[in-house]
Structure formats: C-alpha cells, structure tokens
Design a protein around this nucleic acid. Structure first.
Length: 829
RNA sequence: GCCGGGAUGGCGGAAUUGGUAGACGCACAGGACUCAAAAUCCUGCGAUGGCAACAUCAUGAGGGUUCGAUUCCCUCUUCCGGCACCA
C-alpha cells in the first residue's frame, strides 16, 4: 500500500509472528534455575535415594564454540535426566572441560597468547552456550583438566600406576609426528597419519613412558560382554585388542650353511621362534621370514650377504608405516642362513622381509606359500617352492597357479598327519611339537602398550625427577601438583618446551638431594580424560582424588553418551584405568560405563559433514536466538534416532517451533470439564512417551506428543487435567516453555516438582478398535468392533462386510485366523 | 580382504519385533481469511488405472518359509563407519 503500518498493526504483527517470546521466557527460567539450585539436585550419599549417574563426554573447549553435535547429545541426556528426576531419582549430571590439548598450544605458537588464556575464554563461552540451552548440569561440579587442583590427581594416578609397575619407561620404535613434534599412541595414528594434523607419521626409536595396558588385554576383551554398548564399538575394541590364538614354533639354526663356511659360529646356540595360527600347514613351509629389525639378523647373517641385508634394513627404516603397508609388491632379502624344520629336519632358508612386523608375535613368521596369500606372493616373486599340504574337499584340484588355498580341507604331504582335517591337524601337530619341546600354544594380542608421554607444553607434567645417581625418582605426593611453568617458549623443537624452562627443570633429587632435572614431557591428554568421571563424584576434594564412599554411591556411570570417534581411545583407556584401579583397591567395579550410546553426526543441510571451508556449519547460538533453545533441543531430538547420521533442515526446526506455539496457545482453551476421548488420548500419549524415553527414542516420543496436541487443538473441550499431564510430560524436552505454561496455569512451583505424569492402564484400551479383514493375505476391508469380541462374533461381523462378502462369495473357507484387536484373516479356495 | 551398521514417498523418518506399510514432521498443491502479502486454519499428497466404490503394483535386487514378510532364512547389489602385510 505504500503507507507505513500503524502502531496497532505493528503490534498484531509481532504477536502473530511470536505467540510466545522465547528470548524473555528462556532467560527468565534460566535465571530462576540458577538462583534456586534445588532444581538440579545432586545430593551425596547421605540420602538413601535411588541414584543415577548420567554423563556426556566432556568437551574440549574449542575456540569455535559449541557445535550442534554437542547440543544433540547434551539435550538427549538432559531430557532423560530431567525425566528421571521427575520420577524421583537422584541424578548426577555433571559437566566439565577436557582443557589440555594441542589446538590452544598451536594457537600460542602462532600468536603468543598463552594456552591458559585461550582455554579460559573458550570455557567461558561454552558455559554461556550450555546455559543458554537450559541444560540441567550440576554447575557446582565443573572441572577443568588443566586446573592444578585436577591435574594434581592425574599426576597422583601416574605415580600410583608407576609404583605398581603399570607405567614403565622403555626404548621402542614409536610413532613420531614431525609436524606436532611429538610421539603419539598407536590409537592416535589413523591410516598411518597423525590423528590431529594428518601428517604422515614416522617410526623412531625413542625412550618413552608407557602404560602396561597389554596386561589387561584379556580382561578388557572379556569385559565387553557384560556392558550395554553399541555393537559397533564393542567390535572395534575387539579388533583393536586383536586376540589371536595359535602356536609358537621353534626352528633350530642350521650351523652349516649349504656349501659355505660354518655359520653362525658353533658356540652360538640359537633358535628362531615363529608365531602362527596355522600350525597345520607346517609341512608346507618353504622359508622363514624375520622382521628386518629382528635382533637375530645380526647373529645369523652370512658375511657374503651382509651388505645386501644391511641395505635392505636401511631401506625399511626409511619407510613410514604408511609406505610399508601401502606397497603391494612384496620385497625381501635372503640372509644366507638356514633353519631346521622342527618335524622333518629339512633345511629352510631364512629371509628378511618388511611384511614381517617386529611389533607383533615373535617378529618372525614361517612362509607357507600354498596356504597364505602373502607368502604366496612372496614365493612367486622369489621363486620359492610352493608345497600344498591342505587339499580342498571333494576332489577339487588345487593348482599352485590359482593362488593360496586358505579354506579348510584334508591334510596331504604331511607325513603321519595325512588324511586328518586341517582343524584336527592344528591340534595334533601342536601336540607333537609340544612333546618335542619345539612348540607351545600361545595367545597373541594386537594391542600394544599405551605410550603416554608427549613432547608438548599444554598437558599435565609427568611427576618424575631424573637424578644422575638415583635414576628416575617419583615426585613425593606432598609436592604435587607439579605445576606447569609459565616462563615458556612454546615453539616445539622435538623436546618438550618444559625442558627449556629453567625454573621448571632444575630441582633437587627427592632421594639424595643432589641437583637433578625434572622430566620435561607431559602426559597424553587421554590420561586426563581416563578418570574424570571419578572426579565428578567429588570434584572439590583436596585430600584424595575422590572420596571412596561417594564413588561407591555414584559409580559406575549408568548412561554415557558421546561421539563414536572415541571407540578405541578414550573408551578403552578409561576401561583400563578402572580395571587397574579395581586391582589396586581404590574402586570396587571394573567397567566404568554400564550403558553407552553414540549420537550420530548431524550433517550440513547439503548432506555433507559440516565444515568451515564448506560453509555449511549451523551455529547453535543463531538457532537459539531465532527460534529458541526449546525449539533447537526438540528439533534435534525429532530429526531421527539419536545414533543415526542425519542432515540439518531449518524447515524442520520451524515445524517444531509451530508445534510449541500450538502447545502454548492451547493453555487458553483449558476448561475444568471432562472429555473422555481426550483423556484417553492423553493417557495413551503419556504411555508412549514414557516407553520411548526408556528406550531413548526421542523422535517417536515427540511424534506421540504432536498427535496429542493435534487432537487437543481440534477438541471441543480440553480438560485442564489432560493439558497439565501433557505439559509435565513435555517439560524435559522444552523445559523453559513448560515452566512458563505451568506458571500461567497458576502454579507457584516448578513443573519439575510436579512429578512425572502416570497413566492408567484402563485408559489405554479403546471401546472400539479397527480390525483389518484379510482374504488370502490381502486386506479387503475393516470392521469396527470391541476388542473383547469373541472370534465367532468377529468372524460374523467380518463376513458381513460388503467388500469381504463379495470376495468370499462362492469360495470355500479353509481357515480363519483371528488376532484380537489386530486382524481377522480368511484363507479361501 | 576382515569386522560392524544401513538401504522404506520429493525429503527427515514411523511401523506394537510376523499382522491394515508410509505415523509424525518438512516440502508441494488447492481452498478459507486478507485490498494484498505474511502468519494461521481446512483439504489433498507412494505409483498406475478409475467419476467413484475399488483394483493392481510397491519397503535396494532375486529366491524361500508363511494364511500373511519392511520384519525370519539364502544369494546378490550398493552405501556409511572401523581395521588392515597382525602371520
């Protein structure tokens, strides 16, 4: 029209666009919750009350702030937590920060801003964001792993594990990242690359600190069976632990190499032990392979081959683990020596090849080309004999040109073992070896000890002092924490920046008081997060890491939710910590997380993983501002199953907002009257929502409430009692709005104090149900009948149905199946 | 190669674990209200045929079990995640 709207139209406009003002409502209730802390009670053992421990994986406080993925898992657990509290449970739902880590340190290198500053800013921002979402965390228990009052206990745990030989120092080939200038744990090397910076990792021989996690391999594997975790995570841990049962077989060294001078010297008695899961193929051995780094190589190599062997070794050492695993072509080098077959006594040539790994089994393997793909490729390349010892059943011929035969079969060319199934031969050959003391049954694990030291600044200092006379000495507990120095140049140089802080490293030996030097490495940040759930039980304790009574009251965690990316890092390490702490008598359980759920990734609106470079990142702050926290929380829960990957759709959020507006508007139509159909619908909805919450099926719970709201919207009369039940049931999902409604309904107390609405069984049954009528499996009509109607009556009613009558006419009814309340099915001819 | 999990309308997803496939939401179309738009409300919405009642087809593909299969069994295709020269 061209003229400016009058003040009146402006007001109507605002009201229509914004039936409720989420910004003021949300702020109001967040303030009230904060002031009246009793709304999120987490009382300690004093009260003998049903307790639950709900936990979300605490975040690394990144400068980019909270991600919609955080909102997803936090909302899910917040909903379950609020619901359980309404049921009268005492629920611990804490939050904290995994505050040590590389990004803040890298930022410091670039800008000079101290990591502590960066981290504190980020934590403040996270706190603001989480509060704006109305998450019911117990804010009195916030912890930061970078706080000396926390890492004091991380250091204390280090010393405890060190004292009990669960931490040791060793020189070993380790993963080194040139870009991060630090060593990495195996778990942090993904596809041969650094988990953080994607740089290709090199192998380096270094002396480092390790956790003896391999000691727990078997128990960590067995423990998976008793916990309620996603199958995929359990499978990943199983694979990572990699239990493999087989036989270790000894090959004596032949002292006289064929046609050459005696080698090795007579005085050296040496054997090569190989590990195999296929002892049945022992008679098919053509050669033995040692890992190039194997110490026996030096002892055994024939001088005539020494140069070629050393060259091969050097070439292997130059390769990264990635190169080594990516190459398709097998390479190797004969070392001029022979081993003696333990059963046939025949000479077997000894090779080195980089497909044999020093870090697994014995670092040596027997080569059976006929029955192993790798050995086959190797034998083809170097013209080694291929001897078949397992024949395929049912006469199918095996041709050496076909490649390796790896399926089960019958033993051939294996002396007295011929004719056995290869499974039997495994046992019998191993028995024979054991009898001759040439072999034994062993179990190998793929998992290696956890390398915990890092040559970086922003982590918990390792509480060890190096003394020339006494060696490594534990820092006395009374001197903890060993604080991070502040006079530090962050630039990484391959040794920790701590090494260059004089105030830090010059100390006296606690034992002999001579001048000594502090250990300058810090701990892997996964050490910090391996026990934080224990600290939450008693976060302010200055005497012990956490009071045992309190740990007993809260632990283990009843529900743990987080991303699947921690499948073999955090989740395995934390389990290891608890197993060890149980053995050391500090806790009385092994498994820290009884029930684990992963949230699926929320993708960008384009269906691709959100990333800054792609420009498809959804910022939760903006959604909260525009649509409100209730809408954001509820939309993320409505998108689909928690664990599914799903794309963001802002229109979907709008839909949830519309739903909340309908709910809001309904409060105007409540009446102190009855409406049986609405009351039944309400009880049914409460029933569904309760069951869905139990199963964490938030999407269908919300769907059930939408159905009810639709019914209420079109009802003639809306009973106040029904509406109140609905508001209470939705309070965990949309806490701010439901509090506001509750207040406008005249209540002076929080909706969360009203208890969880209960449903009555008798309200769940309908007087009439729609029953499908099938003829030969096809639905031909429906009938409205009482669910309690007898099958004979139901059958009569069904037959009388017009369309059904038509189909039944002139046919013979062979059989009638009646499922009360569901269907009646006629089988006709 | 091995391990784990998927595949359902235009889209996100439901389906009481063998019982009316497509709930709920989004998008879209038509209508009401409005000078108009937005918002809101009502109606429709898997495909094909039919004015309609209804019929046929349809849950990645093919087979099987069953009165009845998205659901159970076999074979295959494909996608996602993890591990990978582990002996």
């Amino acid at each position: 029209m061209g003229c400016r709207p009058t003040p009146t139209t402006l007001i109507t406009l605002t009201i229509r666009l914004m039936p409720f003002n989420h910004q003021s409502i949300e702020k109001k209730w967040q303030q009230r919750w904060e002031q009246n802390f009793a709304f999120f009670p987490t009382e300690d053992p004093s009260k003998a009350q049903d307790s639950l421990y709900h936990l979300v994986m605490f975040p690394y406080p990144s400068a980019t702030g909270l991600h919609v993925g955080h909102v997803e898992s936090y909302s899910a657990v917040d909903i379950v937590t609020r619901w359980r509290r309404m049921q009268g449970k005492n629920v611990l739902f804490p939050i904290g920060y995994d505050a040590f880590g590389l990004p803040a340190e890298n930022f410091a290198i670039k800008t000079g801003v101290h990591p502590e500053q960066t981290t504190n800013d980020a934590m403040a921002n996270y706190t603001r964001q989480m509060k704006s979402l109305g998450l019911s965390f117990d804010w009195s228990r916030v912890i930061s792993t970078a706080d000396p009052s926390y890492y004091k206990w991380t250091q204390w745990l280090f010393l405890l594990f060190y004292k009990h030989d669960l931490i040791y120092r060793a020189s070993a080939p380790v993963n080194w990242c040139d870009s991060c200038q630090t060593v990495l744990a195996n778990e942090q090397v993904i596809d041969g690359k650094c988990d953080r910076c994607k740089n290709v990792v090199r192998q380096k021989d270094l002396e480092q600190w390790f956790f003896r996690i391999t000691k727990y391999a078997d128990r960590l594997l067995a423990g998976l069976e008793k916990i309620d975790w996603p199958e995929s995570i359990k499978a990943m841990q199983q694979n990572w632990i990699g239990k493999s049962e087989g036989t270790e077989i000894d090959f004596d060294i032949v002292n006289v190499a064929k046609g050459r001078a005696p080698w090795p010297p007579q005085s050296r008695e040496t054997i090569i032990s190989v590990f195999t899961t296929r002892p049945d193929t022992l008679f098919g051995v053509s050669y033995v392979v040692l890992a190039p780094e194997h110490p026996l190589v030096d002892v055994l190599v024939d001088p005539a081959y020494a140069k070629a062997v050393m060259d091969y070794r050097a070439a292997t050492a130059r390769k990264s683990e990635l190169d080594r695993s990516e190459q398709k072509e097998k390479t190797g080098q004969f070392i001029g020596a022979y081993a003696k077959h333990p059963l046939t006594g025949k000479d077997v040539p000894i090779w080195i090849a980089d497909y044999a790994l020093m870090t697994y089994g014995t670092g040596a393997v027997m080569g059976v080309p006929a029955h192993d793909e790798r050995d086959y490729a190797f034998a083809q390349k170097y013209n080694l004999p291929i001897t078949q010892v397992v024949a395929p059943p049912a006469g199918t011929a095996f041709m050496p040109s076909d490649g390796a035969y790896t399926d089960p079969g019958i033993m051939v060319q294996s002396g007295i073992f011929d004719g056995l199934t290869n499974e039997n031969a495994k046992q019998q050959i191993t028995d024979a070896l054991e009898a001759k003391n040439k072999g034994r049954r062993v179990t190998n694990y793929r998992i290696r000890d956890w390398l915990l030291s890092r040559q970086r600044y922003w982590g918990a200092p390792i509480p060890i002092i190096w003394c020339e006379d006494c060696g490594p000495v534990a820092v006395p507990a009374s001197d903890l924490p060993v604080r991070l120095p502040t006079d530090v140049d962050f630039k990484p140089t391959g040794e920790s920046p701590l090494a260059r802080s004089e105030s830090f490293h010059d100390v006296k030996c606690p034992t002999c008081h001579k001048p000594a030097r502090r250990e300058s490495d810090t701990m892997d940040t996964f050490v910090d997060s391996s026990w934080y759930f224990l600290r939450f039980c008693d976060p302010k304790n200055e005497e012990v890491m956490a009071d045992q009574e309190k740990i007993r009251y809260w632990m283990p965690v009843d529900l743990y939710v987080g991303g699947a990316e921690h499948a073999v890092m955090h989740l395995l390490y934390s389990r290891f910590f608890c197993y060890a702490l149980k053995d050391l008598g500090h806790i009385d359980f092994e498994e820290p997380f009884t029930k684990l759920r992963n949230q699926g990734t929320i993708m960008g609106p384009d269906g691709v993983r959100m990333s800054k470079s792609r420009g498809n990142v959804v910022n939760p702050d903006e959604v909260v501002e525009q649509y409100g926290a209730d809408t954001l929380r509820m939309y993320e829960m409505f998108m689909g199953p928690l664990e599914d990957q799903k794309p963001w759709d802002t229109n979907g959020a709008v839909g949830v907002r519309r739903f909340l507006e309908k709910l809001w508007k309904l409060r105007e139509s409540v009446a102190d009257a009855t409406n049986p159909s609405i009351e039944k619908a309400t009880h049914k909805a409460i029933h569904s929502i309760t069951n869905d919450l139990e199963a964490m099926k938030f999407n269908t719970a919300i769907s059930a409430s939408m159905i009810l709201v639709n019914a209420m919207s079109s009802a003639e009369v809306l009973p106040r009692s029904s509406y109140e039940m609905l508001v209470r049931a939705l309070a965990p999902f949309a806490p701010h709005l439901c509090e506001e409604i509750w207040e406008t309904l005249g209540y002076k107390t929080s909706v969360f104090e009203s208890g969880w609405p209960s449903f009555e069984e008798k309200m769940l049954v309908d007087d009439l149900v729609t029953v499908a009528v099938q003829i030969n499996g096809k639905v031909r009509g429906t009938i409205e009948i009482s669910p309690t109607l007898s099958d004979v009556d139901a059958r009569d009613r069904a037959q009388a149905q017009q369309n059904v009558e038509k189909f039944l006419e002139g046919k013979e009814i062979i059989k009638v199946i009646y499922i009360p309340g569901r269907l009646i099915s006629f089988v006709i001819r």
